[in-house]
Nucleic acid binder design. Structure first.
Lengths: 144, 144
DNA sequence: ATAGAGACGATAGAAAGTATCAATATGGAT
DNA sequence: ATCCATATTGATACTTTCTATCGTCTCTAT
């Protein structure tokens, strides 16, 4: 289990895909840089009243496409988004109470996926692993 | 990786929780017994025009509560439901093409989850593992 | 400075699921 | 077998989350 920080700015990652550096986009990127909890699209939109809701949704999609934001599914089926701090394939655990999201990598999982894949007909195209936790320090960690 | 069939009827599983055996409920249960692909709530509703959409949704929730139906999240974030054929804790793989859902158990995964849990602050409350596959035999397997 | 692709805001609409509530059906008690 | 309390249903309105449309505006390459 390890995580490597990749400090490239979120805006830069969109620009490298050819997307323009517009003001609303920068505002979203700047806000995302601060985020260390999972967030809903709606909440993000509310934090940026100067940016149209449609634009917030559009850009979340682009950030996901660029690989710098991930969408998680909570136990109730709702979605939260999380800024990715690593370049590498990884999975997430989410605190059900404070919304904090952490990334992990574990070769054991990937190995398991490969071994399952070998037993199945066809190809394993992708996989998703999510852990839902109740972190001990929630009350102390409520922040952006 | 193994699967144990539990042939108890879906209706019986609701009745054992104290829910009544109504005609719409039976119709839903009967249809579910046939299902070997994942399905959306909407599609199920369309297959049962004699049952109100609200009743279909309500009962899917009850079947999930009873542990005989599971909700999966596809890669695009949409939800499909799948009839569970086992009593035991398990995970799923879904064919992205034909919608077929299979259950698997693998002690390696559970062991991994325990080992991750040991490294985290707090408790791992739950976990979800989903594999997305493209099964070789899709065209031959399109059926209810 | 300009032009054209890309992006934006505003708003309407789609998709998926939930709430409300009057009418009905079920299952246990009699 | 009948009755009754309560669970359940259907119809519909509503909510939430997200997408499409479209006319206008803004980047960025030249």
């Amino acid at each position: 289990m390890d995580v490597e920080k990749v400090p490239t700015s979120l805006m830069a990652s969109l620009q490298s895909l050819g997307y323009k550096a517009t003001a609303p986009r920068k505002a979203i990127a700047d806000l995302l840089e601060q985020k260390h909890q999972g967030f809903t699209a709606e909440a993000l939109s509310e934090e940026l009243p100067s940016v149209s809701r449609a634009t917030v949704y559009r850009n979340i999609k682009l950030f996901i496409e660029a690989g710098v934001v991930c969408r998680l599914t909570l136990m109730d089926g709702s979605h939260v988004y999380s800024v990715s701090r690593t370049d590498h394939h990884h999975h997430h655990y989410v605190c059900m109470d404070c919304g904090k999201v952490e990334e992990f990598r574990a070769s054991a999982v990937e190995q398991f996926v490969r071994s399952i894949a070998a037993e199945l007909p066809g190809q394993v195209v992708d996989h998703r692993i999510e852990l839902y936790v109740a972190c001990d320090r929630c009350p102390a960690e409520q922040a952006g």
